[in-house]
């Protein structure tokens, strides 16, 4: 498969360029500590899958990186600049290079789809309405929506279409880093597989780096170059899937070698042999 070649190539050059560097991050809600001394790198051109049990702060980590939540300690360095120490104007300039897909789409319910996607173009790129809507329709098509969807309201859409439209909006300003919060949750397996493929295609075509919070094992096996496991308030391990699977942490073992993990690994292994896991599957 061609994906394997692209992946290998991406990995080789990835070592050099780190786009986002999280160091010593801490997040607390009252006395509840979510993150403590958390380190994570996001490299250029990779799809980084972030997994962890419910309540381990995957979404909080995403919100800290994109600047929606101020971390209680630590630094988030984005494109070589510390996001927490920047003045607001420079910050918003940097944040424009992020695209975020929220868990439930977060489409503006009073605007139709092409207006939803055109909004950032109108506000930030200074295009005329005609140009912005023209580009918006292209982004919607890139996200795999039919032309007639452009005039629909978000309330008329199915879950899969909402995710696609939200992806189109996240892509509106040609971001360099795309943050996806459980993009395949709530989609049927066919829709989820389509979405995985779409993200890989867009990554290759647009040169994106992707931060992907997910519970979907199939997505991890098919789309992700590296996987970061959040557990015990920090990133336990962040590496290629084969290395992560081999970790002897109890949670990781249960996650990847439980019945669902084995099934997903088997399916992915049948399609493209990336990981020699057969010997460990009996644990």
């Amino acid at each position: 498969m061609t994906d394997a070649g692209v992946k290998a190539g991406a990995e080789a050059e990835a070592e050099s360029e780190v786009l986002i560097r999280v160091r010593g991050l801490a997040n607390r809600f009252g006395s509840h500590v979510v993150h403590e001394d958390l380190d994570l790198d996001i490299r250029h051109g990779e799809i980084l899958g972030v997994v962890g049990g419910s309540g381990t702060g995957k979404s909080v980590l995403l919100r800290s990186i994109v600047g929606l939540k101020r971390p209680d300690a630590g630094s988030v360095e984005v494109f070589g600049e510390d996001l927490t120490a920047l003045p607001p104007s420079r910050r918003s300039e940097l944040e424009r290079r992020f695209g975020v897909l929220f868990q439930r789409g977060a489409l503006f319910s009073s605007l139709d789809l092409q207006e939803n996607v055109a909004l950032p173009l109108l506000e930030h790129a200074g295009l005329t309405r005609g140009d912005a809507e023209d580009l918006a329709r292209m982004k919607l098509a890139l996200a795999g929506l039919p032309p007639d969807a452009a005039l629909k309201m978000p309330s008329e859409l199915s879950g899969g279409m909402i995710k696609r439209a939200a992806l189109a909006r996240a892509l509106a300003l040609d971001p360099e880093v795309l943050f996806l919060d459980e993009p395949t949750a709530g989609l049927d397996p066919i829709g989820a597989a389509d979405f995985d493929r779409l993200i890989m295609t867009l990554r290759d075509a647009l040169g994106l780096s992707v931060f992907l919070v997910t519970h979907d094992l199939d997505t991890l096996y098919t789309a992700c170059d590296r996987v970061a496991v959040l557990s015990q308030r920090r990133v336990l391990v962040a590496d290629r899937l084969a290395v992560v699977e081999a970790s002897d942490d109890a949670w990781v073992r249960d996650y990847f070698h439980g019945p669902r993990g084995r099934a997903a690994a088997g399916a992915a292994g049948a399609a493209e042999p990336i990981t020699p896991t057969t010997s460990r599957e009996n644990t």
Binding site: A141, L142, A205, L206, G207
Partner: peptide, 22 residues
């Protein structure tokens, strides 16, 4: 290669008319 991929992806999308029927 990345440029080629980008141009091809966009071109493939734009083959069809994207004008929604009003």
């Amino acid at each position: 290669q990345a440029r080629q991929a980008l141009l091809e992806t966009v071109a493939r999308v734009l083959r069809k008319s994207l004008e929604p029927t009003r």
